[in-house]
Amino acid sequence: MSVLDPDHAGPVPTAHRAGLIGCHSCGRVWPAEHQRCNRCGAHLKPPDRRGLQAVWAWWLAGLIAYIPANVFPMMRTQTFAGLAGNSEATIIGGVIELIHHGSYDIAIIVFVASIIVPVGKFIAIAWLATVAGRPATIEQAHMRLKVYEVVEFIGRWSMIDVFVVAILSALVQLGFVASIHPGPAAVSFAVSVAFTMLSAQSFDARLIWRGLPLRSKSD
């Protein structure tokens, strides 16, 4: 790969400025009026702020699903002899329980994966979608792209707690002393994570660069 037009000291040539459209899936470039990439079949989307509607829609759906995920129990535990009694634990309740058991490292993993990461993700996506397409310096654009890449990478890891509940409820099939059932929060939490992943995927990183001034000061 090489720079298009290396001698010319103007702004970075982009597909959009050249009247072309780049495929977000395979990178191939087509005339701007093309609807679909002939190489990979993906729909071609111009980098404009209209695409942010999908981001906000998934974001809101994820936020709505995140509320019951915190209010209702993740799982219900019943001990057969009633030794430890019956208990219901929400996400935060589960973390507190782990701290009481003294497993601080696992408590931190669950707390980060189920609370810090989802909340941070909601804030980060909302911020990115708000500032996308607004004027920015090159440094700001690099920072925004970094934030987006972190959100994209880390979002899936919130699923840890769903897998924990799934494994624990499966243990009962193995003749475990207690019976553990997933609560409604397990489902809504899984749904919330999926929606925020879709929200992050709908965000078009090219918008971050649209707000840059056309020419840098050195021109």
Binding site: M1, S2, T14, L20, V29, W30, R206
Partner: peptide, 25 residues
Amino acid sequence: GYDLSTGQGLIACPRCDALHVEEEM
């Protein structure tokens, strides 16, 4: 090796839309 009217031989960065000329690597 590229055509600015059809996009042949060009590649656009999926992250920032910058145009590059495709080359053998």
